[in-house]
Structures are given as C-alpha cells and as structure tokens.
C-alpha cells in the first residue's frame, strides 16, 4: 500500500512537470470550438476583432535562447505583452539553420496566435536549402523592429585602422586579407559578397560557427578582419583586443558613438540585417493590424528603446504598406546575390 502511494505521488509530480514543459509550447489547439459554440455567427468577425487576442500568443524564434535573434524578440515581446493584454510565449524551435521553426510557422493556423521571427534572408530559404516548402509568399510581415548593422573589425596584428587601408591591403593580392564570418549564407556572408563588389577585392573566406568565434579569431590575430554584429563585438572592443574600423549602418550607433560609418569614409555602402515579426500568410487583415499596432506601441515605449539599445539592438521601424513593399524588394535583392553567389 505504501509503495503504491509513493508511485502515485511520483507519477503525479512527473506528470505535472511534463505538462508544464510541453504546455509551454502547445497551447494553440484547444480554444477553437469555444467561439463557434456561442452561435453568434453574424458578429463573428467583429467579435474576433474586438476580442483578439483572447489567449496566449506564441512567437517562434527559430534560433536558440540567448542568441541575438532571441534577445531582440524577447525584449520586444516583453513590452508588447502589456499592449496586447496577453502573455507572449517565445518558443525556440531550433534546428535546420532556422528552417525547422519557419516551416512550422508556415504550416500553422493563420489566426494570429502563432507568429515568428524573420530576418533579411529568410524569404529566400527555399533557394538556400534543400527541401524547404515555404517561400516568400508563405508569410505576412507584421513589423520590422530592428535593423542591425555590422561592425567591421580588424586585428591589431593586421595594422588596418580604416576603410582606405582595408581596401589597399585587400587589393594587394587576391585573398591577402582573411575575413572571418559567423556562418555560411548568413548576413555576414552576404555582407562579404556586397563589400567585395563595392571595394573590388576578394577576401579569404574563413567560416566560424557564430560571430563570437570570428571575433575571438580576430582578437588573437589568427584572422585579419571580421564583420560581427555590435553585440558580438562590443566586449572585445572595450577590452581593446580588436580595432573597430567602421559600422555598416548609414548613421552612427549610440552604443558605440566613436565608430564612424562606412559612408563617412567615402564609400557609398550600407548593409544591415533587419529583424521582423511575421505571421503565416492568410492571417486576417484586422488581426494583423491589431498586432502591428501593439508591436508598434511597444516599439515606441522609451523603456523598450532603452533596453534595446543596452542589448545592442539597432532600432528601426517599418509597418503597413511600406513594409509589404520593402519585403518584396528585399527578397529580390537577396535572390540576385544568392544566384550570383552559387555560380
């Protein structure tokens, strides 16, 4: 009898724990029937509009917790929760270089309760990876809330201190300057392609898994140059281990005000990786509107701006029609780069 009791207790504890963990992720399916059963069919869309959101919203971040993508979304979600009056759960569906999470999102019900994190290159994933079922038309962008510039940094050993010197050194010989990237076909890699075009040089391409690795390689002098995001580089810049050369946005960044832009150094070049929140295509317009308004309000919150700045997220806002157009223009731009890169 006593043993049975023990088993029961342990079984209960385990089941509670499991429900807690699994429940965090799968809470979307149960509430569908409740609205229909009221029988108020005429007012349904209206009430959906008034009532949305009536349950927890989930944002799929296709990258690991604690990474740049994760931090930026969590920050925004924290303030958007207050606007929406509902909890927002961040679900890190990792794997497949971010494609597993986006595939899940593209197949999710388009009711506005499942959203996802999306960056510059994702609309071209079906060109970049094999077996991807989603494409540019599978998503409806809600808001661009960030456009992260890269910082071009050089090792002390290389002696490079500005863009002119970088160009001169790289032009000496093909592949005379090694460039550390945070991964193949990432924003780092696209920056390399477009920068090579702009400077008319060819870098030696060294691929690391993540920007931090590339920065460390520049800090110990193994690699000449790297193009990390601000948050990946700032600790080493402060420690004086790497030399910042330029920031790739069109304006200087508050967090590192001493680093000049590339434009200031006489090159007509910018490269940012924008981050967006998207919904599956087919999400009702009024729901998209409610979400966009809420995220925009969260974005405008000075507290959010402060937090974003602290964590090295470069704020930029784009919503509505402007965003829809930009989404397609950007898609074309990257498609061209990928096609020329694959050749």
């Amino acid at each position: 009898m006593k043993t049975l009791k023990r088993i029961l207790v342990s079984a209960t504890i385990i089941s509670i724990l499991m429900t807690a963990i699994v429940g965090c992720s799968n809470s979307t399916t149960s509430n569908d029937t409740s609205t229909n059963s009221t029988g108020n069919e005429t007012n349904e869309t209206d009430s959906a509009k008034n009532e949305f959101p009536e349950k927890t919203i989930e944002i799929i971040v296709p990258f690991g917790a604690g990474g740049g993508a994760d931090i930026s979304v969590r920050n925004l979600a924290k303030y958007a929760e207050k606007e929406l009056g509902q909890t927002i759960i961040i679900n890190n569906v990792t794997g497949g270089s971010g494609t597993v999470g986006l595939t899940q999102l593209s197949q999710a019900k388009a009711d506005g309760y499942k959203l996802g994190y999306f960056a510059s290159t994702n609309s071209n994933d079906n060109l970049l990876f094999e077996g991807i079922t989603y494409d540019v038309d599978s998503f409806k962008p809600i808001i661009i809330f960030s456009a992260d510039p890269h910082i071009i940094v050089a090792s002390k050993k290389s002696g490079i201190t500005n863009m002119e010197e970088l160009k001169a050194k790289a032009a000496e010989n093909e592949e005379s300057v090694s460039l550390g990237l945070g991964g193949a076909w990432t924003s780092h890699d696209f920056l390399r392609m477009s920068l090579e075009e702009e400077l008319d040089v060819k870098f030696k391409r060294v691929v690391y898994q993540g920007g931090a690795g590339a920065v460390t390689a520049v800090a110990n002098g193994d690699c000449d140059v790297a193009v990390p995001f601000v948050s990946e580089a700032i600790a080493q810049i402060e420690a004086g281990n790497i030399v910042p050369i330029a920031i790739t946005s069109d304006e200087r960044f508050e967090l590192v005000p001493d680093i000049p832009t590339i434009k200031e150094q006489g090159f007509d070049y910018t490269h940012v990786m924008w981050r967006a929140i998207v919904a599956p295509a087919g999400t009702p317009d009024e729901v998209v509107e409610i979400l966009a308004d809420a995220f925009e309000a969260a974005y405008e919150n000075p507290e959010y701006q402060e937090a974003a700045k602290e964590s090295g997220v470069f704020s930029k806002l784009m919503v509505g029609e402007e965003l829809d157009n930009f989404y397609l223009v950007n898609h074309e731009k990257y498609r061209r780069m990928i096609e020329s890169g694959i050749e």
Binding site: A212, I234, A235, N241, E310
Partner: peptide
C-alpha cells in the same frame, strides 16, 4: 569577453543581456 564556454553558458549570456548586464571588461 562574451565568449560562451558551454551551451548553458550561452543561455546565460542571453539572460544577462536581457537584465542589462552586458559582458565585457
């Protein structure tokens, strides 16, 4: 130096940044 030395340490990095503690000297 903001270099994560293991998988849980990488999570720690994110948590610190969210709390406004930016690693570095």
């Amino acid at each position: 130096l903001a270099i994560p030395g293991s998988a849980p340490a990488a999570l720690f990095l994110g948590a610190m940044i969210i709390h406004g503690l930016r690693p570095g000297p």
